[in-house]
């Protein structure tokens, strides 16, 4: 059987997810033997930018106009397209301030004269192309990435955990940030896979994996309100990594409704 042809790409992002792949040091040779990496700008000097691909791994959000064309072109040449990391899956940190007009932000960051990027509101890949598999994480988890690749190589559809961080946090026997510390912890809303890394270091979950499939906004609003935490505080925290998914307007609406 011929090795699957793989391309690894980055749209607007910090390249952290591609770095995780490079950091799979113990498995990197095995991975390089199992697949044929044809196109990976970050790690290879000679790339085939046109060839058809079996698997495309795409990091980053669509936050520049040119990203739209890039991701469409990748889609056209790939059998399987994977959204790699929270930016690609949910919009990520670049989508945190989508409510502020881009011109305002550009001016604030780069000043009056500089115009070298065509910035746009950050969106996940799925807003533009069909995504076959989502692997969230900021950055992605090494183990989850390797399991995903092994499943593809075996001809399976990969699976990721479909429950929240709380269960992993309990398995670690951490002190609950919500119950004992009255913190705004995104654990109950956030997809597991990290092994409750932050609460294990006594820091409330920041929601970097994005939401679980079935987010219970109503329950969360009630829960935090009963603890005397302001709705704005909750929304603010939820918007950091996956703002488009948290639907801030709808969330605020629900909160006001609950508060009445």
């Amino acid at each position: 059987m011929s090795k699957p042809k793989v391309g690894i790409f980055g749209l607007t992002s910090c390249a952290g997810d591609q770095l995780v792949i490079l950091n799979c040091e113990d498995q990197l040779m095995e991975l390089a033997n199992a697949v044929d990496i044809r196109d990976w700008e970050m790690a290879k000097s000679q790339n085939d930018e046109e060839c058809p691909l079996d698997i495309a791994l795409v990091e980053g959000s669509v936050a520049q106009v040119r990203d739209i064309e890039t991701v469409k072109k990748i889609r056209e040449r790939s059998k399987i397209l994977v959204a790699l990391g929270t930016c690609a899956v949910w919009g990520g940190i670049p989508a945190m301030k989508n409510d502020v007009p881009r011109e305002v932000m550009l001016e604030e960051v780069y000043g009056n004269d500089v115009r070298f990027i065509e910035s746009k509101a950050a969106q996940p890949l799925s807003s533009f192309v069909k995504v076959d598999f989502n692997l969230p994480g900021c950055p992605i988890e090494k183990e989850e990435f390797l399991q995903m690749m092994a499943s593809f190589l075996h001809g399976d559809i990969p699976e990721i955990l479909n429950f929240s961080v709380c269960s992993e946090c309990k398995m670690k026997e951490n002190v609950c940030q919500i119950v004992y510390k009255n913190q705004v912890c995104c654990g109950p809303l956030t997809r597991a896979g990290c092994g409750a890394r932050c609460p294990s270091h006594n820091v409330p979950c920041t929601g970097c994996h994005g939401p679980i499939e079935e987010v219970h906004y109503d329950s969360h609003i009630k829960m935090f309100q009963l603890k005397g935490i302001k709705p704005e505080e909750i929304v603010h925290k939820m918007q950091v990594y996956a703002a488009p998914a948290w639907m801030p307007e709808k969330l605020m609406e629900e909160m006001q409704h609950e508060g009445e």
């Binding site: 429950f163 929240s164 709380c166 654990g187 329950s219």
Partner: peptide, 9 residues
């Protein structure tokens, strides 16, 4: 059902 977060704790 409306209160539970189904977090599994």
């Amino acid at each position: 059902g409306k209160r539970c977060l189904t977090c599994g704790s």
